[in-house]
Amino acid sequence: MSRTPQRHVFTNVFETLSRDYLQGKEEVLRLSVIALLVGGHILVEDLPGLGKTTVALALAAVTGLSFGRVQCTSDLLPSDITGLSIFNREEGHFSFQPGPIFNNIVLLDEVNRAMPRTQSAMLEAMEERRVTIEGITYPLPDPFMVIATQNPSDQSGTFLLPESQLDRFLICTGIGYPAEHLEREIIAGGGIRERVGSIEALVYSAEILAARDEVKAVYLSDKVLSYIHNLVLATRSHDLIQNGLSTRAAINIAQAAKAAAFLDGRDYVAPDDVKGIAVPVCAHRLVMRNDMATVERGGVIRTIIAGIALPLA
């Protein structure tokens, strides 16, 4: 069993945050850490006031990474995110002022409020990990991770992310209401926004990058590989689904499963890992048939998984 310092650090991060600061948000935290370990992005889809921003802030604080925030509105321009060149009168030339995207962890709040033009500029930056402005390419910092939030209930004046863009998010998850006793505690103690500032960094970017290498080295056996492949194939031939999972989705499942195994302290992927991340990795990528658009996609993924035999031996 791999007991490397990196994995210990990450377990520690995860445990500290969920114990001291973000009670009841283990799942979203775990998924965020997984996304961080894989180098993917995460889309948190839930109602306002459930702690989406807090999670992002806390994650940035505990990792000691730089944090940028973009509050999306319908008049937000691409340059508001990427930055722009400003003419410097004294020196007599344009100098580039980097936007908020030049941070390690970027929170895109209410991403569906931005115009499609802005959305696509931003998502392109997410995928390419670099920004080209006026012919000059600026690389984004590494590690780089976007935490986007989206409010599913408020549809007026919003631009829902198209499927092709959704595919770029490694993980899409909700937060949900906290359990009753936890919520009472939170009400009693007040929010933790103030305390987030006092979180000490437990992990550094070099460690994150080393951990990423270890995640890549996690062993993915043929059995589990077939299991993943069967899952992908099953979504493509399902009655309710118009377009099944893409190859990128399949790669992402494997990556996320590796990260989950790593977090669980193993150097091999078990089918359980795949099961554990399947819904947040897959559900948002499914394109349902027109008349089935209202079907809950997580449920569909769960039924598909239940129908595939786990490779136990």
Partner: peptide, 28 residues
């Protein structure tokens, strides 16, 4: 899955069994 079973039983021995077994099996 095996680890889900182990979690459901919440038993150290079961977890140990699953750990040893899965390490071999999922390493092919």
């Amino acid at each position: 899955g095996l680890f889900e079973i182990a979690a459901a039983t919440d038993n150290e021995d079961v977890l140990e069994f699953v750990g040893i077994y899965a390490r071999a099996v999922y390493h092919d």
